[in-house]
């Protein structure tokens, strides 16, 4: 297992889209590679920040209006 395998599969790994055996290989590698650990951690941090900042709440009027229309 090399750093290049982690880096080639970084996006799929953080998206949870790698098969379990490849994900496990990466997890094992991260235990001993500080550089790859930092890459993965930064990518996880970025995704999580984007998700938290972009979560929206729909206006109550929109909810009310949809409910009203489905009642017609």
């Amino acid at each position: 297992m090399s750093c290049s395998f982690v880096r080639d599969n970084l996006h799929d790994f953080v998206s949870g889209e790698l098969n379990s055996s490849d994900a496990e290989r990466i997890e094992n590698h991260l235990q001993s590679c500080e550089s790859c650990r930092a890459c993965v951690s930064n990518m996880h941090g970025f995704r999580s920040r984007v998700r938290n900042l972009l979560k929206m709440t729909a206006p109550q009027e929109l909810r009310d209006s949809i409910l009203m229309k489905t009642s017609e």
Binding site: P59, I66, L67
Partner: peptide, 10 residues
């Protein structure tokens, strides 16, 4: 389906 309203709005 209304449970997905916030995500759809976003």
């Amino acid at each position: 389906v209304l449970q997905f309203l916030n995500g759809l709005y976003g």
